[in-house]
Deep mutational scan, measured.
Amino acid sequence: MAEAPPRRLGLGPPPGDAPRAELVALTAVQSEQGEAGGGGSPRRLGLLGSPLPPGAPLPGPGSGSGSACGQRSSAAHKRYRRLQNWVYNVLERPRGWAFVYHVFIFLLVFSCLVLSVLSTIQEHQELANECLLILEFVMIVVFGLEYIVRVWSAGCCCRYRGWQGRFRFARKPFCVIDFIVFVASVAVIAAGTQGNIFATSALRSMRFLQILRMVRMDRRGGTWKLLGSVVYAHSKELITAWYIGFLVLIFASFLVYLAEKDANSDFSSYADSLWWGTITLTTIGYGDKTPHTWLGRVLAAGFALLGISFFALPAGILGSGFALKVQEQHRQKHFEKRRMPAANLIQAAWRLYSTDMSRAYLTATWYYYDSILPSFRELALLFEHVQRARNGGLRPLEVRRAPVPDGAPSRYPPVATCHRPGSTSFCPGESSRMGIKDRIRMGSSQRRTGPSKQHLAPPTMPTSPSSEQVGEATSPTKVQKSWSFNDRTRFRASLRLKPRTSAEDAPSEEVA
């Protein structure tokens, strides 16, 4: 009796068929016929556990003709996506030579605008209408194809895939403007070719909807975003200037109206006075309405000098805001240009540092100066060695804690006790272990408590650290204090090793 083939788990290929790579489910599931010992083939499952149809090819690079078809379809799909992405970037994010197409579109729109203006002049109306009709045909074809291509290429973005995504893309403001202008152009052409009475009025009214094509030149909205950011950044200043200017306008108009309503027919109503105030304070000055009385002229002159300053403030605020924003954008561009080279330089330096163990090129690091100058660790070890030599091999803490019996001779020589300023008595072995921070803190506390006492003391002649007598400086308080830590004499004296002298005989010792 033939044995059933062993159940295979995992992703390994079956024996005897090495080139074939078959994806098997996580659990080997066989058909009921196979479990019962029949000759049925096992049921194939996909990666998600769903059964595959009987005629479906197995996924994998070596699955025969199905694999070749899959490779061809995958390559075609990649080319399709690449083309779609390229078209989308050309239309929505132009760079380099892609601006040539947008310059061509701008020339078409500008020519249409010029011809629309010439069509309103009686001398050039006939020729402009003929040229404009031909140009409209060209623009309908160009913009119609462009609109379709834009909607198709938007599928390269995830949020615009599918018919719902394309509809979302078509609802964008600039796409809506394109659609309105396209419909208006078709209506103008249809009305112009019919030759009816309505054609002339339709051409004159709907052609100027094509002015909206100038708005579509900035599809990404960079200028509007820049203007919005400047207004938002200086909103408080703008609101303040406009508010005060509006108050000056209504008060000036009302007072001039009261002064001129009886003697001047131009100011017969408050609305006429508001019109005069707006034209005057905005420095336009049509001259259609002028005050005639001396009181009205004085009020107009005073409020004009006051109001023009507030009406001119928004222009200066926006101008300075634009300058600052442009400078910030230039700085951001320079930062973006330098970020990648800086990151590459840091990575290269780290690779060199991690692979080169000698690091002989590091001549400006802490390790280099640590090898030249005595390190703080060596100074600490030197302090501890000196203290243990004086205390008979014991550390200062051990000397303080060691009990001394009554009447027993002390094995240590008597030492002079010292007192730290602002604290109780402490171990004499710690007097010379006072660090730089303690010395600086002690000097600052003395300056806070009594700076007036220092200038009363007789001035001391500054001497070099080499000429100081070591026996005289029994305490860190003898170090000359200065008002600034930048004094080199104080810094050098604080680094010197001060020996400890006994109370009975204080021989001067120098520590090399």
Rank of each mutant, 00 (worst) to 15 (best):
F110L: 02
M217R: 06
S309T: 01
G165C: 07
Q84H: 06
W275S: 01
K289Q: 04
R150P: 09
V231G: 04
H102D: 04
S153P: 08
F322Y: 08
T282P: 07
L295P: 09
K261Q: 06
G321R: 13
Y88D: 11
A154G: 03
I279N: 02
G321D: 08
P314R: 10
G222D: 12
L274P: 02
M206K: 07
A300V: 03
G296C: 00
F310C: 15
L306R: 02
R220L: 11
H234L: 08
G155R: 02
I189L: 07
A154D: 09
L306Q: 05
D288A: 00
L295R: 11
G296D: 00
F267C: 00
F169I: 07
I189V: 02
E136K: 10
K236N: 03
L345H: 07
A259D: 02
Y270C: 02
I284L: 02
Y101D: 00
V256A: 05
T200M: 13
A190P: 03
L9R: 14
L318Q: 06
G162V: 04
V149D: 10
R331Q: 09
I279M: 07
M214K: 00
G321C: 00
I211F: 11
L318P: 14
K325N: 09
V186G: 06
G307D: 09
I211N: 08
V141E: 11
V87D: 10
D266V: 03
K333N: 07
E336A: 12
V230M: 00
Y243C: 03
A170D: 05
A271P: 10
T223N: 07
N264S: 10
L249F: 14
H334D: 09
G277R: 03
A252V: 08
F303V: 05
D218N: 11
W224S: 01
G321S: 03
R207G: 01
P341Q: 15
G287D: 10
V230L: 08
V117E: 08
A233E: 15
F311S: 04
R207C: 04
N264H: 11
L107W: 09
R204H: 08
G321V: 12
G307R: 01
Y286H: 00
L83Q: 03
V248G: 07
L132P: 11
I250T: 10
R213L: 11
R161P: 12
H234Q: 14
G192C: 13
E260A: 02
V248L: 09
L238V: 06
T293S: 13
T280K: 06
E260G: 06
G307C: 05
M1L: 15
S269F: 03
G155E: 05
P314S: 00
R207S: 15
G296R: 01
S309F: 00
V138E: 07
F254C: 11
F246L: 12
A154P: 12
R339G: 02
S309Y: 11
S309C: 14
D218V: 09
S253P: 07
G277V: 02
R207H: 08
G165D: 04
L313P: 12
G96V: 14
W152S: 02
P341R: 15
L226P: 00
M1I: 14
W275L: 00
L274F: 15
I250S: 06
F104S: 05
T283S: 09
F322S: 10
P314L: 02
D272N: 08
A343P: 02
G144R: 08
R20S: 13
E336V: 03
L324P: 14
E328G: 13
F254L: 13
V230E: 00
T280P: 01
R297S: 04
I250N: 06
T240I: 07
T283I: 02
N264K: 07
H330P: 00
R43S: 15
Y88S: 14
C112W: 00
R72S: 11
Y270S: 02
T280I: 09
D272G: 06
E260Q: 00
K261M: 05
P94H: 05
S320Y: 13
K289E: 04
